[in-house]
């Protein structure tokens, strides 16, 4: 059959998508992760700057007044130390939250995940379909793309359009 493409477009609405629902949590996860990491980075930058200023001040003091001992130069004020540690932990949290989802390594668990969840289980942290995900990697043994009978497929498709068609 040779139905013009224009007509095809007219009769099909876009099918309802179930991926939209699935994507949302992933998007939110990346967003959270990125925000946390950024926050931590700002904190760390501030801590770094404070520490640097502090040591510059200390060395200036040491140069002007010879009375102070050298040990005062090395010690960091406690607030800067705390800020540094907190910033490190916050970035760490952000980075861990931003890692890609893991995949089960036992064959049966992995295969079961493919069957049970379909492609939804294999979205990466951006919510995009993972590029190397192929579904059941052995499905080609049953569909056999090299031997595809295109005429039969066309006939079936024409029949489907005629009988049910997309409502």
């Amino acid at each position: 059959m040779t139905s013009p493409p224009v007509q095809l477009q007219a009769i099909t609405p876009s099918l309802p998508t179930r991926r939209d629902k699935a994507v949302a949590p992933f998007r939110i996860m990346t967003w959270i992760s990125k925000t946390i990491t950024l926050l931590g980075a700002v904190l760390l930058g501030h801590a770094c700057y404070s520490a640097q200023e502090h040591s510059a001040l200390q060395s200036f003091k040491a140069a002007t007044t010879t009375l102070t001992s050298t040990s005062a130069v090395a010690s960091l004020p406690i607030d800067i130390a705390i800020e540094t540690v907190v910033a490190t932990l916050v970035i760490l949290l952000g980075l861990v939250l931003g890692t890609r989802p893991l995949r089960p390594i036992q064959w049966n668990v992995w295969a079961g995940k493919i069957e049970r969840e379909g492609e939804e289980g294999f979205l990466d942290s951006e919510g995009e379909m993972n590029r190397d995900f192929v579904g059941n990697p052995f499905s080609f043994l049953e569909t056999r793309p090299g031997f595809v009978d295109i005429r039969k497929q066309r006939k079936e498709f024409a029949g489907w359009i005629k009988n049910s068609g997309p409502q």
Partner: peptide, 24 residues
């Protein structure tokens, strides 16, 4: 959702195939 164009389409339902070809 629209099936991915990266996978061989031979096992898709007619509706999905139609959707794919409309992306053409």
């Amino acid at each position: 959702m629209a099936p991915s164009l990266l996978h061989p389409p031979s096992q898709l339902s007619p509706a999905a195939a139609l959707q794919l070809s409309q992306q053409a």
